[in-house]
Simulated scan of single mutants.
Amino acid sequence: MKMSRFARLCLCAALPLMAAACSTPVKAPDYTAFRSAKPRSILILPPVNHTPDVNASNGLIAQMTHPLAEAGYYVVPVTVEIETFRQNGLDTPDDIMQAPAAKLQSIFGADAALYTTITAYGSVYQVVNSTTTVTASSKLVDLKTGSVLWTGTGTANSQDVGEASGAGGGIVGILITAAIKQAVHSLTDQSFRVAHVTAERLLSAGPPAGLLYGPRSVKYGTD
């Protein structure tokens, strides 16, 4: 099939833009404040949930300690933290987010706190497919000064935990497969598995834009 002159012109115009987009390097964040603060311990605040899934905050925070510990930081035990907040009348992530940084530092003794917002969590039925996505963004705040040391975003979906995206058998087969996948996701809490990948991507250390390595890492001071 011959390509029309208009299509050839569009393709020629698009190719340089595509090449430029592919060659654009990821800009490294400014780590000046991070290097100056040198945090050793981190308090993970319960994530604020901007999704309809009531399990989102608990599902993600359960996955966040591991990557921070792997990056070389001491992490305040989440169960201790949650119980402390509860005893002080702070039961929701939104209320906890309003607590002054200096107060958090005096109670927990942590150098920095991780503030997180979840914007996607759960399975979505899309007529011919069903996918589970977890997306969150975080900022690391120095509890002594209130300065933002680092910001990042992480996302993952069903395919990242080994689920195939295709389906055969025509449109009827595709629709049936999508409905089955939606039911399976609901029964097996697929979001929890996807949240693990999201947390690892969000809180990984190292280039091009991850956290700096903490003092418990053999890579501390090399980034």
Rank of each mutant, 00 (worst) to 15 (best):
T24N: 07
G154E: 01
L143P: 00
D111W: 00
A71L: 03
P77T: 04
G169L: 06
V194E: 01
K38L: 12
P215T: 02
L143H: 01
H196C: 06
D223L: 14
Q87Y: 09
I180D: 08
Q159L: 13
T132P: 04
P25F: 13
Y73V: 01
L45W: 04
V148G: 02
R40Q: 08
P39D: 05
C22V: 13
G72N: 05
G169E: 07
D160T: 02
A164M: 09
A179M: 09
G221H: 15
D94T: 11
D30N: 12
T65C: 06
G59L: 01
L212F: 01
R5V: 15
A7D: 12
V54L: 12
L15F: 12
S204P: 02
T131D: 06
R201G: 00
M97P: 04
T155Y: 07
S191G: 11
P46K: 02
K103S: 14
A33M: 07
A112V: 08
A14I: 14
G122N: 02
V148I: 14
M3A: 12
Q159T: 13
M3H: 11
P77M: 06
S23K: 08
T116L: 03
C12L: 12
K139S: 07
L11N: 11
A120Q: 08
K139F: 06
F192E: 09
K219F: 15
T135H: 09
V128F: 10
Y220G: 01
P207F: 09
L175I: 15
A199V: 00
P52L: 09
Y115T: 02
T222H: 11
H50P: 06
P93V: 03
